[in-house]
Nucleic acid binder design. Sequence first.
DNA 1: CTTTAAATCACTGTTTTTGGTGAGCAATAA
DNA 2: TTATTGCTCACCAAAAACAGTGATTTAAAG
Lengths: 211, 211
Amino acid sequence: MVKVLIADDHQMFVDGLKSLLVEEKDMCVVGEAKNGYEVLEICSHEDVDIVIMDINMPQMDGIQTSRELSKKHPSVKILGLSMYNDRDYISDILKAGARGYVLKNTGKESLLSAIASLQSGSNYLSEEASKTLLNSFMKSHSGEQMLEKLSDREKEVLECIASGLTTHEIADKLFISKNTVETHRKNLLYKLKAKNTAELVNNAYKQRLIQ
Amino acid sequence: MVKVLIADDHQMFVDGLKSLLVEEKDMCVVGEAKNGYEVLEICSHEDVDIVIMDINMPQMDGIQTSRELSKKHPSVKILGLSMYNDRDYISDILKAGARGYVLKNTGKESLLSAIASLQSGSNYLSEEASKTLLNSFMKSHSGEQMLEKLSDREKEVLECIASGLTTHEIADKLFISKNTVETHRKNLLYKLKAKNTAELVNNAYKQRLIQ
DNA sequence: CTTTAAATCACTGTTTTTGGTGAGCAATAA
DNA sequence: TTATTGCTCACCAAAAACAGTGATTTAAAG
């Protein structure tokens, strides 16, 4: 009997999954969570085999939750779930301790085989997800890739830029010099491979640095 | 017996909903669709009472599909569905002919009562959705609102701007003068209430003119 | 057949961004 | 200890964006 915990902030999706899983006689849903805190809370007093973990959740997202969870309860297996076939999503949640990843646009079969794989101790990557990872791996070797992480300060400046503030206004707001803001802006342009402010904001959205 | 058609591009969500609905003895799922074309196709040869219509679908989205569907098959009742509690989404799909709207983050109860309401001939708006509509109505009267529609040309220029092209490059690409592009840019800034390019792209994302 | 709206182009400034280069300081990792 | 990284600041010239105003043509709407 596989004990499953469903973590997703869309109640309707949870309800659907639950009704789908209880049909399987070797599975039971032992809990549901709307955010990361609830996942950790439930796992601390409940015996859970597998967490089906949506990546996009309010308050604490699936990535962060996976990190915490695999630290505190390494025996709990995490299956990453999301609607985006996004390199960063996949690699981030795998790095955070998940043992599998499936997309929401695949059917229940792939979900069930993912659960089976994880339960038997192996890993599971859906076909699309592995393609994406492989592609990005290729690219990373042809120099196309590389997404340098932004520092906290840079994210702060990025948000100011996106909200329409000029360099001077940002400088005033963050109590730093105009020159410093210009440097941050320059580094942001470089790191996000943008050639001007418009593309910067665009890329920031695409890479989900802003939502 | 209510005959339901589920339209959503996430197969897993469809599978979940289906298994949830077949539990209800007075309902049956007569079809599923991954995009608008499939919805129209199915409705043309299948007897459908209610379409559960996700707004975000590839190729033809829920809004456009609802418009076509209520033109061709006005007897089919449409229940709008989305994860966003967004004024534009709600009002757009209602204008397009939907008779109800529920959010994915509400549970199955609200979905079932929505279906029941629609089947009995009345409308259904989830609590959050009606709040959102009401709020935006208030705002629209306090002058805060107003989202002037963009012309096709403006959208075209907007995309160019977001992808990082300069005024000069856009002019070359669209075979128009630099001055014209600047005028379009100016109008875009005005219409989206942005004070510079960064905020323009930002607001375009927020208002889902780019995704 | 008008009135309106979209799309086009023009001129003239001012402000902001962008690119290039360089450097000091503090915290932290190797 | 040394190397690296994040944050800070500086200067300057060229490019681009921004603001204000006005005007013509064409197509749709009334």
